[in-house]
Design a protein around this nucleic acid. Structure first.
Lengths: 159, 159
DNA sequence: GGACGGCTACTCGGATATCGCTTGTCCGAGTAAATGCGG
DNA sequence: CCGCATTTACTCGGACAAGCGATATCCGAGTAGCCGTCC
């Protein structure tokens, strides 16, 4: 899995803390916060914006902000926005190639049992990610350190 | 996810049908059956052998065979053997870099909530794969087409 | 005819190139604020 | 002093290279069967 997912998730969580501010947050600021390559982070934030997770405002005081309420953004939304909608395991139906196809009796008519099980497993993974929202993460983080939101807002407010 | 996983799974399922035969199956034969690159398939079968899933016998009548009973080989075993033991999502703790670390209050002391959720989701995925064995796949495949085993054995027996 | 030694063919095993995708960077389009000028 | 046109600085957005892992291939080590020869 690409690192962009991690970057996107962290930045989304930051934007949860900064959601109360009505000013969008520029990419450069988020990159500085996490010590990341600004342009590359921008690329991923664009993907989130295309997916409708973030709203982008160009111009001098522009930046990104959450497009929906945190409890309406699941981890699966972020992952699929960055990684793409394709499943991790895609069965190319090699069984349909070569003599193995004929043995199975048909040109890929039957659903591949391997693909079936792999998709089932991946579905549970997706379901787990879909059941967790940014709000859940924020709540859990605040249980660990109650002043995270205030500290984060303060840092982003500075110069 | 790499294609090698699919190749490995299909070949393992073939080896289930051919488990009754006491002669190992060469890589070239499996490659021909699925119309795959023989040398590259061999590479993945080597990985399965290193993991103790397949047993390899060199020499003229050599080849691969299942090292354990099919109900003792889970899909997770095959996947980890090919893909490696590392989790798909590895949190590099970017929060420990840059000012964000100080805001969180500590040099990575606190466990990252993002990493926590991602690992939980991946754990469900692994659990699902660990709960499915080659024997389960074989049974399911035979429910679809009862004569798969016989057909496969016949093809591999031919010249 | 039987047994033994060497030979050959075939297989795994790892070292070696090639390719595609993720990573990383750059510059242009566009917008809001700041600024200077005129009334 | 107030309003407006212009300039400017800053931001997103997509187009453009570089690095690394998966893909694909080849050759060497080793073994089992086969063949010829000798007893």
């Amino acid at each position: 899995m690409s690192h962009g997912v991690e970057w996107a998730l962290h930045c989304c969580l930051d934007l949860v803390w900064l959601a109360e501010e009505d000013r969008p947050v520029p990419t450069a600021r988020l990159a500085e916060f996490h010590d990341l390559a600004p342009a590359y982070l921008n690329k991923h934030l664009q993907a989130l914006a295309r997916a409708g997770i973030l709203g982008s405002t160009p111009g001098k005081r522009g930046g990104f902000r959450l497009a929906r309420r945190p409890d309406k953004i699941s981890l699966l939304d972020v992952v699929t926005a960055v990684e793409g909608p394709d499943p991790a395991f895609r069965c190319l139906n090699i069984r349909n190639q070569g003599p193995g196809d004929a043995v199975m009796g048909g040109s890929g008519r039957r659903a591949c049992v391997i693909s079936h099980s792999m998709r089932r497993a991946e579905l549970t993974w997706r379901r787990e990610l879909a059941g967790t929202t940014l709000a859940d993460l924020a709540e859990e983080a605040q249980q660990h350190a109650a002043d995270v939101a205030a500290r984060t807002r303060r840092w982003f407010a500075d110069a």
